[in-house]
């Protein structure tokens, strides 16, 4: 049985004075124990909303959530608020994008770690402090005993994110969701945090959902990658297959916009033209069509479905041909 089974997840935000906004639409994927799954796409494509929906953290008043999320066979959406609270932090941990704003500025780091141990592992304060020291040590924070009594503003960005990772992993959750955990950090720190995450989940039963706008981040980490566009999955493939032959023009564009070490000197990065602002609703055509180099007439007339296509899932009328990779698609632009 899959650890996490997301079926047909949809999130609609009701907005004051505006028509409702569909942020996530029909997203399905599953995560096996110990597996690392990537959720990739440009900013605004619904990655965070998807993860918050799984965690049950969307604002109840403005967000309407549909579909189902099963965790080890238990339907999370049918749990009561209290039952969900018992699982958050224990079975499901989450690391957020901005480590500074995600930590409480007026509460010592130590308490922010121990409170979750006291809550879910029934530890007394003293025992929890010992465990917290251990945890900080494990995530590579030097001098952990001293750090426990310090406040977030006294730590560097990288150290803060390590502390947040320690908090999320404190109760050894079976699923960790990391929502752009490196985006707010310096480039050199980014690599450290990524390898830390990799090291912490490798060889354990803990599964990881890695959310990022940067395909480069998932390259060394994920077993399987879901590419999101406009709130829908447009391509899903095993990591090696995806990188070897991205079939959706959007994925292809994302790959082309990563800086590569083996790029010829002087070769320019080619970002995808246009921006998410060009989003059109999925009904009546492909939302990516206005930005797509491969767009055909059908693309603006018929909404593509997510279908199996040579061993992967693809939502595209005119996928990039593997043979034409690189050369062909660039000419098409």
């Amino acid at each position: 049985m899959a650890l996490l089974e997301v079926r047909d997840l949809s999130v609609v935000f009701s907005r004051k004075g505006q028509s409702p906004f569909s942020a996530v639409d029909g997203v399905s994927f599953s995560v096996q124990p110990g597996q690392t799954v990537g959720l990739v796409g440009e900013s605004g494509c619904g990655k965070s909303v998807t993860s918050l929906a799984i965690m049950g953290l969307l604002p109840r008043r403005s967000a309407r959530v549909g579909g189902s999320v099963a965790f080890e066979g238990t339907e999370l959406f049918s749990l009561s608020d209290k039952e969900m609270r018992d699982r958050r932090g224990k079975d499901l941990g989450m690391v957020f994008q901005d480590p500074l704003s995600s930590l409480n500025p007026v509460v010592p780091i130590g308490l922010q770690v121990t409170e979750v141990l006291e809550r879910h592992r029934g530890m007394a304060r003293k025992q929890a402090r010992a465990e917290a020291t251990e945890l900080l040590n494990k995530v590579g924070i030097p001098d952990p005993t001293r750090r426990l009594s310090e406040y977030p503003h006294q730590l560097s960005g990288g150290m803060r994110q390590r502390a947040l990772i320690a908090i999320a992993l404190a109760c050894r959750p079976r699923l960790l969701i990391a929502d752009e955990p490196t985006t707010a950090l310096d480039v050199t720190i980014q690599a450290q945090i990524l390898s830390l995450l990799k090291e912490l989940v490798a060889g354990t039963e803990t599964a990881l959902i890695m959310i990022t706008h940067d395909l480069g981040v998932v390259a060394g980490l994920c077993d399987e990658v879901n590419v999101l566009y406009g709130g829908r999955i447009v391509e899903r493939a095993e990591r090696h297959e995806l990188f070897a032959a991205p079939r959706h023009p959007y994925t292809h564009g994302l790959l082309d916009s990563i800086p590569r070490l083996d790029a010829a000197r002087g070769e320019k990065l080619s970002p995808i033209r246009g921006s998410v602002a060009d989003n059109i609703p999925w009904d009546g055509g492909c939302a990516f069509a206005p930005r797509c180099p491969n767009a055909l007439r059908t693309c603006v007339e018929v909404t593509p479905e997510l279908e199996w296509h040579e061993g992967r899932l693809l939502r595209c009328h005119n996928p990039v041909q593997p043979a034409a990779l690189g050369v062909g698609s660039k000419e098409a632009r």
């Binding site: 932090g89 224990k90 704003s101 409170e115």
Partner: peptide, 16 residues
């Protein structure tokens, strides 16, 4: 604030 969301993600009780 983000840190309230973090606190929620830890499953802390509403009182805390």
């Amino acid at each position: 604030e983000d840190f309230v969301r973090t606190a929620e993600s830890k499953g802390l009780t509403t009182q805390v």
